[in-house]
Design a protein around this nucleic acid. Structure first.
Lengths: 152, 152
DNA sequence: GCATCAGGGTTCCCTTAAGGAACTCCAGTG
DNA sequence: CACTGGAGTTCCTTAAGGGAACCCTGATGC
């Protein structure tokens, strides 16, 4: 299928997709986040092909999103989120928010999140890191940054 | 390649991936968001195959994320974000934040965002929709919700 | 001391999706 | 009346996902 690599584009979205944009990768992260850290667990829970799972785990480890740890004298390993990977979970939480709102239908959200700070069932909201006001699609101007294109 | 459909899983991440998880889809949304709304523009900017672009646009329109509008008497069309699609841009902004932090390297962010409310160059930050405090991977408990699995 | 087991992967073949170039269709315009 | 430009289709090739079977390794059972 000779898929185009997005990593070379001068775009943080494309680069992020290069790390976790492949099919299954976000779901693998989700499972590891909620404590399903082992190969067979992941395979059984997701129903992913073992071949593809092995590829994804390799790639995610290579990208520094996961770490592979032995947990036994036998050759047994579990996968853990690195700091880089943990911050990717933000992305998952936003996906959950959107999916809950637009795709969950009658049945409602499959999963709920209780926020430690306030103890309430809640979801994420995007705020400006500078002023704390809401920050969504229409609230920003897009400007070229220091790492902007010039690609030939 | 008979890809597994994620849409049936009781997981908002999987369902969201079913809508915008295919290769190129987030980049198509990004381009449309910043004003590249026409087929040939998208094709030229992304370097995507026309065939795949046509497929993606169709799918995104079908999912209610984009709308196809005639902009001429001739058969000319442009694509626009619906409300559903506009809210997906939140996801893109979070991807940008992560990519800027972890993947941009020396050169720095390719693109900057100026927040209308405060006029500053800034990025998004995830907050609890209820109490307004930061809400990240470690700040929540995950609980089964009303639409939880029971799949068979 | 040999067979079994379980976790964690490979290997193999098949099918299908992505790439890419060429082709089509359609309404103006020169 | 040919040409142009936008917006797709068609067709072929190649590589990636699915899936089942196989392998390796260090316990554990008998």
């Amino acid at each position: 299928m000779q898929r185009t690599s997005f990593g070379d584009m001068a775009c943080s979205i494309a680069r992020t997709l290069d790390v976790v944009g492949e099919p299954w990768s976000p779901l693998v992260l989700r499972d590891i986040w909620v404590g399903m850290t082992r190969f067979d667990q992941l395979q059984a829970d997701l129903g992913i092909s073992r071949k593809v799972l092995a590829e994804r785990l390799h790639h995610l480890v290579e990208q520094g999103v996961l770490e592979r740890h032995a947990y036994d004298n036998r050759p047994r390993y579990e996968y853990r989120l690195t700091e880089k990977g943990t911050e990717l979970v933000d992305l998952l939480m936003v996906m959950v928010g959107w999916g809950d709102k637009w795709l969950a239908g009658e049945a409602g959200a499959p999963v709920l999140y209780r926020h430690h700070a306030c103890g309430e069932i809640s979801g994420v909201d995007l705020r400006c890191a500078h002023c704390g006001q809401p920050m969504h699609a229409g609230d920003v101007d897009v400007l070229p940054g220091p790492g902007a294109a010039e690609s030939t």
